[in-house]
Design a binder for these strands. Sequence first.
DNA 1: TTGAAAGCGCTAACAT
DNA 2: ATGTTAGCGCTTTCAA
Lengths: 334, 334
Amino acid sequence: MSITIKDIAAIAGVSTATVSKVLNGKDKDISQATREKVLKITKEYNYVPNNVARSLVTKRTKTIGLIIPDITNPFFPEIARGAEDKAQEKGYSIIFCNTDDDIEKENKNINMLVEKMVDGIVLAASAKEELNIERSRYNSIPLVLVDRDSNLEGINGKVFVNNISGAYQAVSYLLENNYKNILFLSGPLSTIPSKDRLKGYKKALKEKRIDYNDELVIEGEYKYSWGYEIGKKVLDSKIKFDSVFCGNDLIAFGVMKSFKDRGLNIPKDIGIVGYDDIYMSRLVEPTLTTVKQPNYQMGYRAVEILINIIEGKEKIDKDIVLETKLIIRKSTKV
Amino acid sequence: MSITIKDIAAIAGVSTATVSKVLNGKDKDISQATREKVLKITKEYNYVPNNVARSLVTKRTKTIGLIIPDITNPFFPEIARGAEDKAQEKGYSIIFCNTDDDIEKENKNINMLVEKMVDGIVLAASAKEELNIERSRYNSIPLVLVDRDSNLEGINGKVFVNNISGAYQAVSYLLENNYKNILFLSGPLSTIPSKDRLKGYKKALKEKRIDYNDELVIEGEYKYSWGYEIGKKVLDSKIKFDSVFCGNDLIAFGVMKSFKDRGLNIPKDIGIVGYDDIYMSRLVEPTLTTVKQPNYQMGYRAVEILINIIEGKEKIDKDIVLETKLIIRKSTKV
DNA sequence: TTGAAAGCGCTAACAT
DNA sequence: ATGTTAGCGCTTTCAA
C-alpha cells in the first residue's frame, strides 16, 4: 500500500533500525550524513509512520477514552473540550463515547476502549449508581473520574467540583442582600451533587443563624418544564419566600417565566439564582445570577492527571476539587 | 502483561489459529467441543483481545476521525452525537478533534489521524477557505465533508444542508402572513451557507413578485451582541421594515432584546424569525420562530456514507443535501 | 556509527 | 477439524 520504514531503509541503503532511530529522534550516534539522507527520502516519498505497528511494540497508543453521558447536554461540551485540549497538548488523542446514562452502554464502551488499548480512560459516570463492570477486565488501565463519583474499583483519580461551596456561595449572597426566605428548587436528590448543594444551602443558613425549614426545599427535575410548573404551584401555595435558589439554570428559567407570567418583578419582588452559568443565562431578561462550574477545567485537569499517571509521573491516586464562582447579574437585587 | 491468544491456545492445547477462528466466529468447521473449551478458558482468564495487533494485520482500525471547529459551539454537539451513534451502531469508534477554524490545527489533526490509521475521516471544514493540506499524504483514506464545503482534493462524500430552501421557507412564511418588508440580518457573507441563505431570501421575494431592496440586507456577525447593536441602529434609521429574518438565533435574540427595550411588541409590531433552533429558542419570550437544521442527521448520515465507502458498499462519491424545517412559534403572527 | 534479529499479538492462507 | 507458518510495520536489544 503506502511506503514503510523498510522501503525507506532499502532506498537509503541502510537498515530499518537506523531509519527507526532517526525517525524517533534517537539519533545521538547516527551520522549527520545518514540522518539527512533518511529524512530527505522520508519527505520525498511522503512517508507516513504507522502508529498501530508502533503501538504494538511500545504498548502505548497515545489515545485516551472519554466517556460521558451525552455530548448534547450543554453541560458536557466544555468538559470534552478541556479534555481534548490537554490531550492534544501532550500528543494524545481522544476517543469519545456517549452512554445516555445507560449502564449497559457504559460497560460496552469501556470494553471497546480496553480492546482498542487506550492508555487511559476519563469517565463521567452514569447517574445511576449501580454500575459495576468487573474492574478486573481492565485492571491495569488508568481511570480517572470526572464530575460524578462512582462505586467502580481501582479509580486512580477524581476531579469534581465543590457543590457544597457552590450552593453556599449562592445562598450566602442572597442572605447578605436581605433576602430572608430562600426557596430551594432542587434536582433529584438521588445524586451526590444535588445532595451537596442541599448541604451548602443548609450550611449558609446555619452560619447566618437562620432555622432550616424543609417546606422551603422542593425536589424535582433539572428541567425548564419542571421549573415552570413548580413556579406556578409555589405561588399558589401558602409558602412564604422572597427568593429562589435553583438547582440549575433551566429550572431558573422556568421559574422566572412563571413568575413573570403572574406579573411579578424580578428581582424586585423575588430574587432568583441559578446554577451552571449556561450560555443563555446572560441572554434572559433579567440576566441570571448563577453559579459557574469550571467545566473546561474539569476536563483539562482530568486528562492532565491521567497522562501523569500513564507516564508514571504521578505515583499516588489523586483527587481534585475545583471551586465554583458566583456570577452576579440582574436577577438578584443588591 | 495480560493474557494473549497464545496463552489461551497453550492452555486449551490447541493452536493459536484455532483460537483466533473461534474468537472471530469463523468457526464453521471447528468442533463444538474445542469451541466450548476455548470460550470457557477465554472467560475464565478474562481474555481481552488486542485490537492493535488485529488492526496491524487486518488493516482496519474500526475507528474514524471527526474533525470539527469547536464542540463548545452549540451547533456541533448534535453533529458529533449523530456521528457517534452511527459509528457505535456499526462497531466503530470516533476520535474527535477541535480545530478552532485554524488551518494549522486542522492539518495537524488530519496528520495525526492518518498516522493512527483511522479508516476514514468526517470533516467539518474550517470556515477559512484556504485549506490545502497535500491530499497525497493520505490519499487512500476516505473523507467525507459535513456542513461546510472545502477545496480539499479527493473528497468522497458530502453532507450539507439546504440553506437556500431554509431561508426560502422562512421568508415565504413571513410573506404569506402579511409581512411586507423583511429585513435580513445576515452573518458574514464570505461563507457559502450565508450566501445561500441570501439566495433563499431573494428567491422567496421573487416568487411573490416583490422587488429586492438591498437596503434591507445587512451583513454582520453571528452573535448576540451584533444583533443587539444592529437592532437599535436599524430602529434609529429610516429603514422601513415590519419583520426581521435573522442569520441565526443568537442574532435574533439580540434583535429581540433591543426591540423590547424600545417598547416594541413582538410579533405585533415586528415579526422575527431566527435560524438554527438552538435550545434557547423555545425559552425566550416570545418563543422564537426559527429554521431547524438537521444537525444530528448530518453527523449520522456522514458516518453512514463513510462506513459504506470503507466497507466497499458505496462505489461512487455521494453528495447529500438535507432539508431544513421551519419551526413556528410566537415571534411571528399568523 | 550501524545492522541483524527477535518479537509485539494477531490473522489468514495453506497444509494436513 | 486443526495446525503451520508467514507476515503486518515497527522498536529495541545486542553485536559488530
